[in-house]
Design a binder for these strands. Structure first.
Length: 293
DNA sequence: AAAGAACGGGTGCGCATATG
DNA sequence: CATATGCGCACCCGTTCTTT
């Protein structure tokens, strides 16, 4: 292992190198937000050109996702109700029964509410543990759980040292505090996500250049009940990018913890792996002394 | 109208995890 | 252990929106 070698700045007009597209291991927040090529430098050429602050925020990991306590159980319960409803429908179809009773009232999108269908089929459990009504929108379901003061569950690695390997896969564990979902950076209340694991040094990867154009006219399918992403820090960045660029925001007005874990100063190689960071006890001290100015 | 910015959606890579 | 799978990621292209 030698000194950190950053990817040399690429000419914006020549992103390809002999048909090989080079990509940095980590793009800065602005480039990610703009979906533009980042040269990985500190600051990157794009930020430099725009006289913008160039920071390399922490990347999220799948196991950082946090869900309201009981969310999984509710999903399982709802799935059970759906299965029961489907089985009931099958039974009725086999018996030559049609839809019994008056047609259900259609909702705004032209179809009856799932809740009404299940209720009519007698598949809607109301045992107190499940919600009083079948929640069509998972985002709403999560918000309800949060509003009800439910705790939160965070995905944990199944190979956790303190977990019982004989027990059912402990995918979720309770977390101490409820995060503020409107501010994904508050997820710093949890242990910090280690820097991205990647073989180091690996400042640039080469992938073949696509020589064809993309298909046009993407289908307009829309899923009306997406599971909301709780931890997309780009939303937060998006909120504040302009004020930050204009230096109109008082950074001291935010709690220090907001920055410690997610914003890695560009001077630190964002490509450092977990192994590279392991054993650096002074890391926290570094943040405490250098990040908060 | 032209230029630039923003953004949706796509490709393909690497990593983490699950599975055999 | 090897392999399969899921996911996050960079960043490209094309379209739409905004600014001049």
């Amino acid at each position: 292992m030698g000194a950190t070698i950053m990817t040399p700045p690429l000419e914006p007009s020549s992103p390809m190198d002999g048909g090989i597209r080079k990509r940095v291991c980590k793009a800065c927040d602005r480039c990610r937000l703009k979906k533009s090529k980042c040269d990985g430098a500190s600051p990157c050429s794009r930020c430099k050109a725009d006289n913008a602050i160039c920071v390399f925020g922490e990347r999220k990991k799948s196991h950082d996702k946090v869900y309201p306590k009981g969310y999984v159980e509710m999903l399982e319960s709802q799935q059970a109700q759906l299965v029961a409803g489907l089985q009931e429908l099958y039974k009725r179809t086999q018996n030559g029964q049609g839809w019994t009773g008056a047609p259900l009232k259609e909702s705004a999108n032209g179809v009856p509410l799932t809740h009404d269908i299940l209720e009519r089929l007698g598949a809607l459990k109301q045992d107190g543990h499940t919600s009083e009504a079948f929640e069509e929108d998972l985002s709403v379901l999560q918000q309800k759980l949060i509003a009800d003061g439910a705790g939160f569950m965070q995905r944990q690695p199944s190979h956790d040292s303190h977990s019982d390997s004989s027990a059912p896969s402990p995918i979720y564990e309770p977390v101490a505090q409820r995060p503020n979902f409107t501010n994904p950076f508050n997820l710093n209340q949890f242990p910090p996500t280690p820097p991205n694991q990647s073989p180091f040094p690996q400042n640039a990867r080469a992938i073949p250049t696509k020589s064809h154009s993309y298909p046009h006219a993407q289908s307009n399918l829309s899923w009306n009940t997406p599971v909301s992403e709780f931890d997309d820090s780009m939303d937060f960045i998006n909120q504040f990018e302009s004020p930050i660029m204009d230096s109109a925001i008082d950074m001291n007005s935010f709690p220090p913890t907001m920055f410690q874990d997610h914003i890695v100063p560009a001077a630190i190689n964002p490509c450092l792996t977990m192994k590279d960071w392991a054993g650096q006890e002074d890391l926290q001290r570094y943040f405490n002394t250098n990040m908060i100015s």
